[in-house]
Simulated scan of single mutants.
Amino acid sequence: MLIGELAALSGLSHDTLRFYERQGLLHALRTAKGYRRYGAESAARLTLIRLAQGLGFSLAEIREVLAQMDALQDGALDAAQVQVLLQGKLAQIDARLEDLRALRAQLADQLTRACPLRLQAEQG
């Protein structure tokens, strides 16, 4: 299918599809006239990319997963591999939550003290 067909099917813009191609997430063949031609699997690949982004995976992480999938004969990760990926992302989110909790505690602590910026304004 051509880029316009894939854009209509996926709900993504032509620019997004071209960006994904430049990032190595999506592959297209070129026709003799230079048009991009995408395979039937491209729509499913875009669904996976959007799902993974929604789950907090970066494009670099998604590119790695897609490369793993491309290297497999059937092109699909098994349930154990998916579980490992999701557990890893969950661990990253948990670590980030801990960092945010610590930052929140520091900010809350500062609220109980005089604000240095406020003191400077009163003195000036």
Rank of each mutant, 00 (worst) to 15 (best):
A71C: 05
R18F: 14
L119D: 12
Q87V: 00
L66P: 05
G56S: 09
R104M: 06
L25G: 00
I93M: 10
V65C: 09
R37N: 08
Q68Y: 08
D99S: 08
A44R: 14
R113V: 09
E61L: 03
A91L: 02
T16R: 08
Y35A: 04
L86M: 14
L2S: 05
Q123H: 12
V65R: 02
G75E: 04
A32C: 08
T112G: 12
Q73K: 10
A32L: 11
L103I: 06
A40V: 15
Q123K: 12
L6R: 00
D94T: 15
R96T: 08
E61C: 02
A43Q: 07
A105T: 10
M1C: 10
A105I: 03
A108V: 13
I49H: 00
Y38G: 08
G39S: 12
A95C: 06
A43F: 15
L9R: 12
L29C: 10
L55P: 00
A52Q: 01
L9A: 15
V82F: 14
L117Q: 10
A76L: 13
G75P: 11
G56I: 02
D78E: 11
G11A: 04
P116N: 06
L77D: 04
I62L: 05
R50G: 00
F57N: 00
Q123M: 11
K33I: 02
G34D: 14
L103P: 02
D15P: 03
L103A: 10
A7V: 03
G11W: 00
Q73L: 11
A32I: 08
L111G: 13
R30V: 12
L86S: 06
Q110S: 12
E5W: 03
L66A: 08
R50H: 06
S10R: 01
Q68I: 03
M1Y: 08
L103S: 07
I62T: 09
A52H: 00
L29A: 14
G75Q: 06
D70R: 12
L100N: 09
A44G: 14
K89I: 02
A28I: 03
L77N: 07
R118L: 14
G124I: 00
Q120M: 14
G39V: 02
L111N: 10
Q23A: 13
D99Q: 11
A32Q: 15
Y35W: 11
H27I: 11
G54M: 02
G88K: 01
F57W: 06
S58A: 07
G24Y: 12
L26V: 15
A91D: 07
D78S: 02
G39L: 07
L12S: 04
R30H: 14
V82H: 15
A8C: 03
T16P: 05
T112L: 14
L86F: 13
T47Y: 04
L29Y: 06
S13R: 05
Q68W: 11
S13G: 12
A28V: 04
G54R: 01
G88E: 04
G24N: 10
D99G: 10
A76G: 02
G24S: 09
G4A: 08
R118G: 07
G24L: 13
R63V: 03
V84I: 13
A105P: 02
T16I: 09
E98N: 10
E98L: 15
K33N: 15
R18Y: 10
G56K: 08
R113I: 05
G4L: 05
L117N: 09
A121Q: 13
D94Y: 07
L66W: 05
R18E: 04
Q106F: 11
